Computed example of a mutant assay.
Amino acid sequence: MNRVPMLQMSLAMAIFGSIGFFTGKTGIPAVELVFVRCICATLFLGFCWFITGQHKVEVWCKREVLQTIVCGIFLVLNWVFLFKAFEEMSITVAITLYNLAPIFVLIIGSIFLKEKMTLTSLLAIVTCFLGSVFIIGIQHFNSLADFVGSGFVWAILSAVCYAMTMLIGKGITNLSAYAMTFVQTAIGILMLFPFMNFAVFIGLSDSNWLYIIGTGLIHTGFVYYLFFNSLRKLSTIVISALVFVDPVVAILLDTLILDFRPSILQSFGILLIFGGIVYTIVKQEKIVVASDGDGGLERYLL
Rank of each mutant, 00 (worst) to 15 (best):
I281Y: 14
L231S: 11
I103V: 15
F222A: 07
W49Q: 11
C71M: 12
M117E: 14
P262Q: 04
T280S: 14
Q266P: 08
Y279M: 03
D246K: 00
G188H: 09
T120Y: 12
G216M: 09
R63I: 13
V200P: 03
W209P: 04
D259E: 05
L252H: 08
N99W: 10
L242V: 12
R261P: 12
T42A: 07
N197R: 11
G296R: 01
I168M: 08
L190S: 14
Q67E: 12
F50Q: 08
I51M: 15
F86G: 01
M6V: 12
T120G: 02
W154N: 02
L210H: 15
S267W: 08
V80N: 10
W154V: 07
I39S: 08
A12F: 12
T165C: 03
S150A: 10
F222P: 12
L100H: 09
G188D: 12
T26C: 02
K62H: 13
T185Q: 07
G131I: 07
L175E: 11
V105N: 08
A163C: 02
T220Q: 06
G109F: 07
T165K: 01
L33C: 08
C40H: 08
E58W: 14
L144N: 06
L130R: 02
H219I: 10
V65Q: 13
F112G: 04
S158E: 09
S18T: 06
L271D: 00
S207M: 12
F35E: 11
F198K: 07
S263K: 01
T96N: 00
T173N: 06
L190H: 08
F227S: 14
I270F: 11
L204Y: 12
T236C: 09
C71Q: 11
T120E: 14
E115H: 06
V70W: 05
V31Y: 05
S205E: 15
A199F: 11
F129D: 11
G131L: 00
K233G: 15
L75E: 13
V126W: 01
V278F: 15
V245A: 01
M13D: 15
T220Y: 03
S291I: 01
D292Q: 14
L217P: 03
V160D: 12
P247G: 03
A199T: 15
K170C: 03
L33M: 10
I103P: 00
I138C: 03
G72V: 15
I19H: 07
I273G: 09
L100R: 01
Y224K: 08
H219F: 15
S230I: 10
G149I: 10
V80L: 09
L130Y: 01
I172K: 02
V243A: 09
